[in-house]
């Protein structure tokens, strides 16, 4: 007994070090294989508050550019709206606008912490459960998609960026119904990869990639990027396509959160299938 106590006393620094190292490596392994920790992430009230305070100052520096981006987006949306009226001769005020028929609910938010240079990137935004944000909402920007909400606190949310090794979204080539998985190979923050597209599909540089229909998180047909190049995977049976994103991932401020009201129902239905898939 005496010897054990002596041993502990003599090596107390080593034991302390090993103990703390064990804790941190356990946390690392956990965050590599499962979801991020519920409490220790940048969306908690302290770190979220610090980021929010700093962002309140820095947001003024590129206000003009952000305004221009929003005007551009409004212009695009208005042109779609006017042309639709003209072509289909449907008057907007005669159309029944029942709020229970809306499938997708949109929440506007601002990024208070962006990250694109790590291997697993997480983004923090300034809307939380108080504003109706819940886990697994899709996050889009005026130009493309950004990621999926992973954790929420009262005032902030943590978003798993598409620039994350755990990210895996459904996407397809425009005007075809061939969909694959959108992943990131960690090399370049403005390029992501679309894998599992069968070899027989004709692929052209410059083709547009959209979100697919198999995901209940994002609406279908949101633009993601254009094809930059491709190569065949190891088995030579499917493509791995490099996609240049429409977003500039290093320079995003305003985002929209998309909530699919039917998602719970879809999930329930899919979980009832006996083999899970």
């Amino acid at each position: 007994m005496q010897q054990i106590i002596n041993f502990i006393f003599r090596n107390k620094n080593l034991l302390l070090y090993l103990f703390l190292l064990f804790i941190s490596i356990a946390l690392t392994i956990r965050s590599h294989s499962y979801h991020q920790s519920k409490f220790f992430n940048s969306a908690n009230s302290i770190s979220g508050g610090v980021y929010n305070a700093s962002n309140n100052v820095t947001t003024y520096f590129n206000l003009e550019k952000e305004n221009q981006k929003l005007v551009q987006e409004n212009m695009r949306l208005r042109s779609i709206l006017f042309n639709k009226e003209y072509n289909q001769e449907v008057q907007i005020d005669s159309t029944k606008f029942d709020s229970t028929l809306i499938t997708y609910k949109i929440i506007a938010a601002r990024i208070i912490k962006n990250s694109y240079s790590n291997l697993d990137n997480y983004i923090t935004i300034n809307k939380g459960s108080k504003d109706g944000v819940i886990q697994d909402m899709g996050v889009i920007t005026p130009d493309g998609i950004l990621g999926i909400v992973e954790n929420t606190s009262q005032n902030f949310s943590q978003v798993q960026s598409i620039l994350n090794r755990k990210s895996n979204l459904n996407a397809k080539i425009k005007n075809t119904d061939n969909f694959g998985s959108l992943v990131w190979n960690t090399k370049d923050y403005n390029t992501v990869q679309l894998i599992d597209i069968p070899r027989r599909i004709p692929v052209k540089v410059g083709d547009t990639i959209l979100t697919g229909a198999a995901s209940s998180i994002f609406p279908e047909n949101i633009p993601i990027g254009t094809i930059k190049g491709w190569n065949l995977d190891v088995s030579k049976s499917s493509y791995s396509i490099d996609i240049a994103l429409f977003n500039d991932m290093s320079n995003i401020k305003n985002v929209y959160l998309v909530h699919n009201k039917d998602r719970a129902e879809i999930e329930l239905l899919e979980s009832q299938k006996p083999n899970g898939q």
């Binding site: 941190s24 940048s42 770190s47």
Partner: peptide
């Protein structure tokens, strides 16, 4: 780690 959402990595290397 908490601020940069890299739970455990900074802590492990700093304690080392």
């Amino acid at each position: 780690d908490i601020f940069s959402d890299t739970l455990g990595i900074h802590a492990a290397s700093t304690v080392t």
